[in-house]
Design a binder for these strands. Structure first.
Lengths: 281, 281
DNA sequence: AACCAAAATCTCAATTATTGGGATTCAATA
DNA sequence: TATTGAATCCCAATAATTGAGATTTTGGTT
């Protein structure tokens, strides 16, 4: 990460200030937080406001503006990963009572980008758009486990504070990751939400780097051994199928992979999964 | 709009390329479209990709990335206009069969930022995130009608192509706007969607500038005169109430106006509307 | 209506950070 | 392994960004 475009970074840094804890910022607060001079900041704000990324509040304050909604609307229809994975999510939620999620890995964050739930599922606490914890749960673990060695090490070093705790050493982590990676799936009991079991599989891009995960969370109290085995199998197959289809996409660019039906997803799930796993060797 | 931050604008311009018609862009296409040099473009792209605004597709292409989803998630919970207007939208959709929308005006676009529909409503073609046409429909007209004189003129001049057509002169437009402004509400029959009637009221900020609109669209075939009168009254009152509440907000900053119930919105609808209209004189 | 304080914008010189041509490295494919 | 195209690096030139301070605008108050 050598050369970045400084000015652009400084503008985007303003958007980074907005968080669930602080959804309104005054110009002065931004100045203090980022150390920009007044004219410079107002120039940046003019740009961001003109484009709709920020809007003024009555009084003096700023919040995120409608342009982000517009972009998200587009993004939802643009991301081929979402298009590819949607039928699988529906399939999972249809077969097993629970909440199926598609999450994406970016920067060093995990974000839910699509979800589906069975009619009788407990309400999910992680709807679309919600960042997921990096240190806990099946999703995060299955992603971290599939990182390239050096990325994994970098992350362990950088986020030592949250990844390594009183009951986890760095070495234990590495061992866990190795096992998860080999298994191709990860199961976690009540790590994110008590009383809920989560099963997650990795979505891997061509170079074998994880770009996201597919998962199902279900009520732990109603979980049986067979059911868990079935879920695990479905998750693993779905993850493999999605990975394979997503990579294959590159050969038919511009081809809008019209949302596939749940039925055909089911088929793909069996077919592609095998092919893909075979190729992995 | 004299001094803008050039570098930042050039970065954001990249995001503007993405549209429903073209959701994938290759670096070369961007270079051609915007005329940036190769190193510069790649620097920009690195910034945008690192922040998650763009992601690489398999092959070589880029699409919008998960960061916009994250921001939208936040925005939805940050925008006090949405918080203020939500109960009114619910109220409208509850009282009248149809689709109630909250739209925001920014730049020179109209965007739907929240919606609700009655159980028996025909499906809306304008969900959250969807841009609305500038030249047709009750929403656009009620917003344009309430623009400050010079903004209105500027817009008429700039978007002459879509605003002034074979059956509309600029003067007729101005006259229409004047009438709509005076009425405080606008009704349009089948302009956006055939067979559908739309009623919209303006949401005005402190300085009387429109920042959005609240509207209800309903099946024209099932519309009666009384019903339309009732809707019109509700829309006008809601719009006035929201405008008043939104402006009042500035005196209790940081105060999270916890979502009000539909019942209390109903009350506000009557109360505030009168106050606000009185103040308008 | 006139006034006041705070917010937003402007001016402009200094300088710094950005730019782009060309060379180079990296990565994927045959 | 050779080959092509994509992505990055290098570095001097320059054009664009920056910020102190002055100025205007805005919104609220007496």
């Amino acid at each position: 990460m050598s050369s970045t475009s400084g000015s652009g970074d400084r503008i985007l840094a303003i958007l980074d200030l907005f968080s669930p804890d602080r959804r309104e910022w005054s110009p002065d607060a931004i100045m203090a937080a980022l150390g920009y001079s007044r004219p410079t900041l107002y120039r940046y704000l003019k740009t961001l406001k003109a484009a709709g990324y920020l809007v003024s509040l009555p009084g003096d304050g700023l919040t995120l503006g409608p342009r982000v909604t517009e972009l998200d609307f587009l993004m939802q229809r643009s991301d081929p990963l979402i298009a590819t994975a949607s039928p699988f999510i529906a399939l999972l939620a249809g077969r097993h009572p629970g909440v199926a999620l598609l999450t994406r890995w970016y920067g060093s964050k995990i974000l839910c980008v699509a979800s589906d739930r069975s009619p009788d599922a407990p309400v999910s606490s992680y709807p679309r758009g919600q960042p997921m914890p990096l240190a806990r749960g099946a999703i995060s673990r299955v992603i971290l486990a599939n990182l390239a060695r050096r990325d994994q090490e970098r992350l362990i070093a950088e986020r030592r504070d949250i990844l390594v705790g009183p009951d986890t050493t760095a070495d234990a982590l590495r061992e866990t990751y190795r096992a998860v990676r080999r298994a191709g799936v990860c199961i976690a009991w009540g790590e994110v939400t008590p009383g809920v079991v989560g099963v997650a599989g990795p979505i891997l891009a061509a170079e074998r780097t994880p770009i996201g995960a597919i998962s199902l969370t279900a009520d732990a109290a109603q979980m049986t051994e067979e059911r868990l085995a079935a879920i695990t199998r479905d998750i693993r197959d779905s993850a493999a199928a999605i990975s394979g289809m997503f990579c294959a996409r590159q050969h038919r660019p511009g081809d809008d992979p019209a949302l596939k039906s749940v039925a055909s997803a089911d088929q793909d799930c069996r077919d592609s999964a095998q092919h893909f796993r075979r190729r992995r060797q």
